[in-house]
């Protein structure tokens, strides 16, 4: 709409890149929403987002943009969109998205990421899980033996 000025905020990633976004998009994050309310400032707000790099933040904002503009009538469409969005994230990005959604309090994104990680774990053996996620097996041989015994019912 001509003449109506959208309220904008500036987010600064941990590596110093500035993102200027609409307030309603940024407010998808409860962390930012609270920060804005507390500050009581209307314009030219700069909010540092610690621990989230520019690569990750740009992907997070893509999610927020979509969800801020979706109406309740588009549930199916947004579900499809979410699916594609999380599908194209590689394992590293998935990790950083989860971390960012957690620190920025974006519940929808956290749920989406967590579901995706769960789907990668599903059906895999402990060793396959370690290989996929590059996790070091830090159990002692005795602990491992105990787990093997306890979980025997699950290794048929």
């Amino acid at each position: 709409m001509v003449g109506v000025k959208k309220k904008m905020v500036t987010l600064v990633s941990s590596d110093g890149v500035e993102f200027v976004v609409e307030k309603r998009v940024a407010e998808q994050s409860l962390f930012i929403k609270n920060a804005l309310n507390e500050g009581g400032v209307e314009e030219k707000v700069m909010i540092p987002i610690p621990k989230v790099t520019s690569d990750t933040l740009s992907s997070v904002l893509e999610y927020c943009e979509k969800h801020a503009s979706a109406t309740e009538f588009q549930e199916n469409e947004i579900e499809e969109w979410d699916k594609e969005y999380i599908e194209k994230a590689d394992l590293d990005l998935l990790y950083y998205l989860l971390q960012a959604s957690y620190s920025m309090s974006i519940m929808g994104l956290m749920e989406l990421g967590a579901k995706k990680v769960a789907s990668l774990i599903r059906g895999k053996s402990p060793q396959e899980i370690r290989e996929l996620f590059n996790i070091k097996n830090d159990f002692t041989p005795e602990q491992e033996e105990e787990i093997r015994r306890e979980m025997q019912w699950n290794y048929e």
Partner: peptide, 13 residues
């Protein structure tokens, strides 16, 4: 069943 396998990955998990 999946959880039981995931928790066998490392001590933190």
């Amino acid at each position: 069943a999946s959880l039981a396998r995931a928790m066998s990955a490392c001590t933190h998990w």
